[in-house]
Design a protein around this nucleic acid. Sequence first.
DNA 1: CGATCTTACGGGATTCGTAAACATA
DNA 2: TATGTTTACGAATCCCGTAAGATCG
Lengths: 293, 293
Amino acid sequence: MSATIKQLRAFVVVARSRSLAQASAQLHTSQPALSVAIRNLEEAAGGPLFSRDGRQLVLTPEGREFLLRAEQLLHSWDQSLDAIQQRFRLERGQLQLAVIPAFALNRAPILLAEFHLEHPQINIVLEDVVMERVVQSVQEGRAELGISFRPDDLGGLEFVPFERDRFIAVMPAEHILAGKKAVRWRDLATHPFISMNRGSAVRRWTDTAFEQCGQSAQYVCEANQLSTIGQLVRAGLGISAVPSLCMVQMREYNLTCLPLSAPTVTQEVGALFKSRGNLSASASAFLELLTRS
Amino acid sequence: MSATIKQLRAFVVVARSRSLAQASAQLHTSQPALSVAIRNLEEAAGGPLFSRDGRQLVLTPEGREFLLRAEQLLHSWDQSLDAIQQRFRLERGQLQLAVIPAFALNRAPILLAEFHLEHPQINIVLEDVVMERVVQSVQEGRAELGISFRPDDLGGLEFVPFERDRFIAVMPAEHILAGKKAVRWRDLATHPFISMNRGSAVRRWTDTAFEQCGQSAQYVCEANQLSTIGQLVRAGLGISAVPSLCMVQMREYNLTCLPLSAPTVTQEVGALFKSRGNLSASASAFLELLTRS
DNA sequence: CGATCTTACGGGATTCGTAAACATA
DNA sequence: TATGTTTACGAATCCCGTAAGATCG
C-alpha cells in the first residue's frame, strides 16, 4: 500500500510526542487507528520508523531522517493548498488588464479603486494601450481581460458589452456653438475640426459620421492622444468629437461637451477575453463588477 | 474533504493530457473514478482547476499555478519515500563506527572491505580512538556502533561480545625466549618489559597478570600506541605482552608472538551500542556481520 | 495492577467500476 | 453519430472505533 498525507501527519505528531496515546488525543482519533496508520506507513517506507522498546516509541535513525522530510513535505503541502484557496477567495493573485486610454482615464480609476477596496491583496497590472493592442494583449495572454470598444475583428475572443458610448462634440466654453443644448454633425462641418490620426477606430467612426450627413470635416490637426486633442481644442485651434467616455476628462480642461446627433454614433464598450471558463477568479470578479453596473 | 496524494497524482496526469480518457488509461483506472477524483480535488482547492468547455479539460489560471506546485510536491514526495526505502535497502546511508586501534588496525580493514563490497553506497565513517573514547562516542551519538574490549563501566550501553582475545607475548625473533612454543607471565618478569601507559586498560590487565603469578615486571618504557610498542620491541629495548588482536601487526614488524599463560588473560571483544532497536539498517547489518563470524 | 501498545472484528464511510445519461463536434 | 464527460448505483475496499489481548514498569 502507498503512503498517504494523513499517515504522514500522524507520523509527525507521534514522533514529536513519542506516544501513541498522546498523539491520538491531539489528532482526535483512537490509539489503535494510529497504531495501524504508523504500521502502514512503515510498510510503505520499507522498514521500522520507530523502535518499540518498552512502551515508548523512539525514532530509529531512518525515522529521524524521515521526520525531517515529512515536516518539510507537510509544510509545502499545506502552503500549496492554502495558496490556491487564497486565489479562489481573492485574497491573493493578479488582475491583468489591457484597457483603452479613454476607459483607463475616465472609468478605470473608480472601478479599480472599488475593486481594490474589496480585494486589497490582488495585485492590479494595468496596460493602457490603443484598441488594437488591447486585443493583441488578450490574445497573447499578457492580459486576462481587455476593455475596449467592440473591435471589428474579435480574433477569436469573446466580447461582452457593458456600456454604450455615444460621440459628443467638444469645444471651448466661449465657442459659438457652446450655447446650444445639442449639435448635429453638419454643425461641426462648418468649423475647424481636430481629430484622431488616420487609422484609428475613432477616426474611422467620425469620418463615417460626416459622410452619413453628407458633409466633410475641415480637418486642421490630428493627434494620437485624447488628452492632446483636448488641449488643442482648449487652445482654440478647433473643435472635435470624442467618445462620451472622455467627458469627465474634457470637462477638466474646461471644455463644453454637447450631445451629438444626426447620425447618433454609438459604440459598444465591453470586456474582451479568451473564454469565460479560463478566467481567473480575480478576473471573473472584475468582469462581474463591470457588467453589474 | 481533504485532498490526497492520489488525487494530486491524477490531477497532474489529467492536466498534462487534457483528457480524462487518456489519463484514465495511463493511471489504470476508470474515467468516472478520475472524474470524481478531480471534482473532489477541486472542492478541496476551493474552486475549479479545469474549465470544461466542450470535452476538453483546460487548466484555469489557478489550475496552472496548482500544477506547478503539484509537480514539485509529488517530486519531493517520491524522492523522500525513495530515500528512506534506499536506507532500509542499504543502498544509501552512513555507518558511523568508533573502534579501538587494535581492532581498527587488524580486523576492521577486512570486515569493512567485505561490508563495502556488499553495500558500496554506504558511507563509512571510522573513528579509531582508545576504549574510553569509544564508549563516549557511542553515548554521545557520534558513532552508532562501537567496537572494543568489554569496558568496566558500560555506561548504559549494550555490549555484544563476538570474539575472545587472549594476551600474547611479543619479542624480537632473535630473543632468547623466541624459540619456545609458549611462555608464562613469570618468564616475562625476568626480562625488560615495555607496556602501555598507566591508566589504560591493557596496562591494568598486564599489571593484574603479573600480580596473579606473584611477579612484578621490569618496566623499561611505556607508550600509548601499540605500533610504538611494536617498534620499541623490534629495537630490542625489551619484550611486551599485547592482545592477540595485534598479532598480524606485530608479525609485520618481524616480531615473534607466543601464547601466554599462567594466568591466561582473556578479554571479550564486542560491539557497543545504545539499543538494538535504535540501530540504523546499516549499523544492524554490520553488527550482524560482526556476530556471525 | 496501571498504563500503553497491539491485535481482532464489526460498522460506516469512501472509492471504484459498470451502466446509463448527457454534451459536443 | 461518435467521442468523451458526467451522473447513478451497486460492490468492494479501506479506515475507524470498540473491545480484548499482550507487554512492561
